[in-house]
Design a protein around this nucleic acid. Structure first.
Lengths: 354, 354
DNA sequence: TTGAAAGCGCTAACAA
DNA sequence: TTGTTAGCGCTTTCAA
């Protein structure tokens, strides 16, 4: 049996302390708990509470600074007004910007977001998903690290609201928003083709990522459409880390026939630039470049980089919209692929004939 | 009166469905709810539950995949194993990296983090603090946008666990971790002094930010220690945005006596580089630079930038430690200022004599 | 060594 | 138009 009186015996007999919760406020006003709850949830109109009662309650709530316990509300109602956002690497500017947009728009609708960094690891991702689900988030926005995730499959099958961003899970039918990766890569290649290049190398990230796979597909398709068949060793790359990219880029630079390179990921672009510096190759005179992920510094290096910009704000907005649709009981939406934008600067020139 | 039987009448009479919660598990095992709860919370030892009972419960919990409802636990216990992380701008690489480190280490101790972006606005920050507190987070890690915040003051006075990072609130005694801003600025200036510079300009961010104020203080002190009194118009800057920084940098570049400039903030460095490009000033031949915030691209521009690196991992680790100390009922800790690191590259040369 | 029972503060069904 | 009441699922005190 609990023995923790909130008020001392003397206080109990004297004027009651300021109400702290709905029950005490109701007592204070001589109304029922239910009425107070209804009004504070903005459902006075629907349930025909009298305007006077409503005003009284609202007023009292304001003067006593009543803050309904959301834990209790959630326990009872089953909804937490909370979602989980799981990304592979928040320190990556792309995901940081995405997280910012998503959080900001969600916050404005009263939902709080749990951030979880999956560290590019499926195990961590699965654990995060589990944890967040246990915490009763209403839904999830996930940028998956790999091509599948058992925990996620279970959730989706249960009908739990999840939307994936950036990378899709091929085996799972869930609402999705991302850049049109293939189209974006095509855009990069086309810019190079238009400048006269034919032998264009491709620096990719990790073949394990869907987005990367798609971009490579777009690269290949664009070249083929132009009548050039990319050789296997025109494509290099085996991971998203900078050292791996640098090494892969060095392989590409060792192929004299290549007059241009597209870099298919932001992290990877850093490795490419390093390799170019190492090799003393001059850009764009000796090598043209189009690189993924517009960044604040891209206009400041020399030469200013021609880049592919992903529609981050739109991705965030659509992802939130898709999720809200699900939270409101709507059907699972489709996959949305948004167009990227090419930013012309000075890293593309005519092909260099050795 | 509720009329939602979990099981159909027939099912009720037949074999009971798989237990879903502690109560049903207890019934299933013929034990009491309390015993099950105790064991699942790892308190069997302390309360001398028999090892057999413990094993039975643990085993059953595993086979039925029992996941105690954390909302209910939180409602009852008053603890949510949740904290709020409020930063002015997650898209800023410094805060993104900080958020990543904080979230990762906290997640490993079982606490989830609500991310909230205060958009460099005091109003938003106050609203976020309020919201998070209402959601019953156990504590907060905050990078304040301004010099005061009424909502925060109220929380702190109540004894609510808060630790501030990066920027301190001068009026509030709360545990704090950040780079030694003044020392870091001094480090930058000293590097320039050692290269022979005397007339060193200072590009600052916003005077409204404590961190910026401190850095300017360090700049001034370092110059004075070297016997040079900085003129008022050696210091420019009125905000953290890139255009503002570019304009302020232009003012600095217009002063012919300055042979070097220190940039005191990451965002601001981008504006400085823009202005230098605009003016066609050559670096380091005509102007030396030391800039705040080491970034992945700093080694890739020309010239490679000499930078000041903040100890992000250490700040995150200390902030978490300080918060955990508070969560465990410890006293309010002190302010911790961690040393920065100067990364020598090529943007510092001997002074240019015009 | 285990069980009983009292809530945590709220929502929502139903009654009045 | 408002009140009564039964829980949501758990933790924790106290008794046995």
């Amino acid at each position: 049996v609990q023995r923790k009186p909130r008020t001392t015996p003397s206080a109990r007999r004297a004027a009651p302390a300021a109400p702290q919760n709905l029950a005490s406020l109701a007592r204070h006003l001589g109304l029922s708990l239910a009425t107070v709850s209804l009004v504070l949830n903005g459902r006075a109109r629907a349930l025909r509470i009298s305007p006077e009662t409503e005003a009284r309650i609202l007023q009292a709530a304001r003067t006593f600074q009543i803050q309904p316990n959301r834990l209790a509300a959630s326990l009872r109602s089953g909804r937490t007004a909370t979602i989980g956002l799981v990304v592979p690497d928040v320190a990556n500017p792309f995901f940081a910007a995405l997280a910012q947009q998503i959080e900001r728009t969600l916050r404005n609708t009263g939902v709080a977001v749990f951030l979880s960094d999956s560290e590019e690891s499926i195990e961590v991702e699965e654990a995060s998903l589990h944890e967040l689900h246990q915490r009763r988030v209403d839904g999830l926005i996930l940028a998956p690290v790999g091509l599948q995730n058992r925990r996620l499959e279970a959730l989706v099958k249960k009908g739990f609201p999840v939307v994936s961003i950036d990378r899709v899970l091929p085996h799972l039918a869930l609402p999705h928003v991302s850049t049109d990766h293939a189209g974006a890569a095509r855009q990069a290649v086309v810019a190079l083709l238009e400048a006269g290049h034919r032998r264009i190398g491709c620096l990719r990230g990790s073949p394990a990522a869907y987005s990367d796979e798609e971009r490579v597909r777009g690269y290949r398709a664009a070249l083929r459409d132009a009548g050039v068949e990319p050789a296997d060793d025109w494509i290099a790359g085996s991971g998203f880390t900078r050292p791996a990219a640098r090494e892969a880029a060095a392989q590409l630079l060792a192929r004299p026939e290549l007059t241009a390179i597209v870099s298919l990921a932001g992290q990877v672009t850093l490795g490419l630039l390093e390799a170019i510096r190492d090799h003393g190759r001059r850009c764009p005179e000796q090598l043209s470049i189009v690189a993924f992920d517009e960044q604040p510094w891209c206009s400041l290096i020399s030469p200013p980089l021609t880049t592919i910009e992903q529609p981050i704000a739109a991705i965030a907005a659509q992802a939130v919209a898709l999720l809200q649709h699900r939270l409101n009981g709507g059907a699972v939406g489709a996959a949305i692929h948004l167009p990227s934008r090419l930013i012309h600067r000075s890293s593309v020139g005519p092909p260099f004939s050795s």
